[in-house]
């Protein structure tokens, strides 16, 4: 995969999709995210990079309120999605999560058939009027997840019977099937081989036409390949945020430079 081809396909807009203001996250007494301000653009791939344990996953989970499920977790500050505060008491997190989908760090397919895994989201959101439509949605999602060819002959065998990398792509297909506006991906390629990784990266670039994608990654090359914006986290703070090519060529903060040249993390 050539770095340039992806970057050249510029449909970048300057619309702000998500804007975080003074976000603080605590796990009990642990202060995991410290005063993070960031504006994530629509139809853009934004990469979160940083050393392990710096709070990338934590911040990502704030954006679709998955942190609500952790009892000890408290979130302060505002996160606006299309100008609306997602932590407003009037917001139902379930409705929010249909709009902001997520792919998790560890593949977690349902212990059901491959078909049911993908069809579940469209079913509960009423996206298909009949079986034929549902079949079509499932096929399209599996194709976008770059796994269709591998599973098209065994759609009704269990999703848990796939390899780790296939499971992750199934999870991506499952997330895409519900047609979210924002897709959060937590290290989606950590279990994939280079070919599958390239396919997922291509998918991410394609998703950018319609969605805003936020991806956490440990691979600097991946961040450089797929993202237009990069945010560098360190010890719970957002150290630097800017256009990807600028971050990788002339970082402003010495910590960013050390990290991308491999000295911390």
């Amino acid at each position: 995969m050539n770095d340039m081809t992806l970057l050249e396909r510029g449909v970048q807009t300057d619309d702000i999709k998500i804007s975080a203001r003074n976000v603080e996250v605590f796990y009990g007494d642990t202060h995991a995210i410290k005063n993070v301000n960031v504006e994530i653009q629509d139809k853009t791939v934004t990469a979160f990079i940083g050393p392990s344990g710096c709070g990338k996953s934590t911040f990502l989970r704030c954006i679709n309120r998955m942190n609500d499920t952790i009892d000890i977790c408290r979130v302060k500050g505002d996160i606006l999605l299309d100008g609306e505060d997602i932590y407003d008491p009037k917001v139902d997190p379930v409705q929010l999560r249909a709009k902001v989908g997520m792919v998790f760090q560890k593949p977690n397919p349902f212990p059901k058939s491959i078909y049911d895994n993908v069809a579940y989201g469209p079913k509960i959101h009423g996206l298909a009027r009949n079986k034929a439509e549902l079949d079509e949605i499932v096929e399209r999602a599996l194709r976008r997840g770059a796994i269709w060819d591998e599973v098209k002959d065994r759609l009704h065998s269990p999703g848990t019977g796939l390899s780790g990398g296939q499971q992750q792509r199934l999870c991506i297909a499952r997330a895409v099937a519900t047609e979210p506006e924002v897709l959060l991906m937590d290290e989606p390629c950590s279990a994939l081989d280079p070919i599958a990784t390239a396919q997922v990266e291509e998918l991410i670039d394609e998703l950018r036409q319609d969605y805003s994608v936020v991806i956490v990654t440990h691979s600097m090359q991946q961040a450089a390949r797929v993202s237009q914006k990069t945010a560098f986290f360190h010890l719970g703070t957002l150290v630097e945020y800017g256009a990807t090519d600028r971050i990788f060529t002339s970082p402003e903060d010495p910590r960013t430079e050390s990290y991308i040249t491999g000295r911390i993390g």
Partner: peptide
């Protein structure tokens, strides 16, 4: 495993749907 609950919630299932389905 909690990851199953996360998976369901992550694609916009309600708590009740994630439990019963």
């Amino acid at each position: 495993p909690p990851s199953i609950r996360d998976a369901a919630l992550g694609i916009g299932a309600s708590k009740m749907q994630s439990v019963f389905h």
